[in-house]
């Protein structure tokens, strides 16, 4: 287990170098630069432009800029935002809890709905129940997130007026962040209605973000269950006179979950990509929206650092999933 962990950690190094090059190149390939964007429509004189270029070091050869950036990384310095003048890492830690809260809600929703739906579909395979679950999953899977988000906003916020359109909590409430999770902080604040407000802001973005992972998990659970239900040990479980709930929910599901856990791990990347769109639609102040805003402002350091951090999170989660996989599958436990 220790060797496995060390090996996985060693793999992080080339991955980080790769991501840093891609992130560095990607943002510079876009036309325009941070100074032009800061100047805005008023424009800027050529002398002043050159002066600022030099001040930020953007006039140096690209390879020097990259090595300088890498040098900073090695010292744990992700650079400073040109726009806010705050260190990238500080900004990240301010915004990350919002994304984490949204992602956790979404993945919880996806797992706790997707797994049971997949199990039901497998047990009732071929029936109308199976067909409607799988049909819905297919629609969910191919749903363009942007369009789906807008549709839900129009229905629930516009027509029904049940949920707010954007943000994490109503402007009526204000309290200092403690955990960074709005649901918990609103409870801690003790303010009347704050929790309700936070929850109602969270519902739609969570549903939107959960849709694709939910569909994928339901489909994967169904096919894993179908395979497992034909196994000899399921027949043995039935031959012992165990109730169907135990045969399916324990003996079969426990085995079916092994591949499903891998799928859930892979959905974390999908979730991050989805968070960028979802946060933009719902003006959710998380790192997805932060990334998009920074790309528009050509905030080099933020885009580079943000992508690197997101890549790090995805790798960390995958590592956790792999360890978890070893724990649920006794055959590869050492």
């Amino acid at each position: 287990m220790l060797r496995f962990l060390l090996f996985r950690l060693a793999l992080l190094i080339p991955t980080f170098v790769g991501v840093s090059i891609v992130a560095f190149a990607f943002i510079r390939l876009l036309p325009g630069d941070p100074i032009m964007m800061l100047a805005g429509e008023r424009g800027i004189s050529a002398e002043r432009y050159a002066e600022l270029q030099a001040a930020y070091g953007f006039d140096r050869p690209i390879i020097v800029q990259y090595l300088d950036y890498l040098w900073g990384l090695l010292h744990g310095d992700l650079g400073t935002s040109v726009v806010t003048r705050r260190p990238v890492l500080d900004e990240f830690f301010t915004l990350f809890p919002a994304t984490l809260e949204l992602s956790l809600c979404a993945i919880t929703l996806a797992v706790f709905l997707g797994v049971p739906l997949g199990v039901i579909a497998a047990v009732k395979r071929g029936s109308w129940v199976d067909q409607s679950i799988m049909g819905t999953a297919l629609v969910g899977y191919s749903m363009p997130i942007f369009w789906w988000g807008l549709l839900l906003i129009i229905l629930f916020s516009g027509i029904l007026g049940w949920t707010p359109v954007s943000g994490r909590i109503s402007l009526l409430y204000f309290f200092p962040p403690v955990t960074g999770f709005m649901l918990i902080d609103s409870l801690l604040s003790g303010q009347d209605g704050a929790f309700r407000s936070a929850l109602s802001h969270l519902v739609l973005p969570s549903i939107v973000l959960a849709t694709i992972p939910l569909a994928v998990i339901a489909r994967q659970t169904r096919s894993a269950m179908l395979e497992v239900l034909g196994e000899d040990y399921v027949r043995t479980a039935r031959s012992k006179g165990l109730p169907p709930a135990r045969v399916i929910g324990l003996h079969a599901l426990r085995n079916a979950l092994i591949p499903v856990i891998t799928t859930i791990g892979l959905q974390i990347g999908v979730l991050m990509a989805g968070a960028i769109l979802t946060e933009t639609i719902f003006s959710w102040p998380g790192i997805g929206k932060w990334m998009v805003d920074s790309v528009f402002k050509r905030d080099y350091a933020v885009v580079q650092g943000g992508l690197l951090l997101i890549a790090g999170i995805i790798m960390l989660v995958n590592l956790i999933v792999d360890v978890l996989y070893g724990l649920v599958n006794p055959r590869i436990r050492h």
Binding site: G241, L242, H251
Partner: peptide, 28 residues
Amino acid sequence: SPSDRRRIVGKDISMIFQEPVASLNPCF
């Protein structure tokens, strides 16, 4: 009925199979 059968099967009548390794649940 299925529930009456479950009271007999595994208790009064039991069965063993051809593939012993595959017949046991690998997760428990």
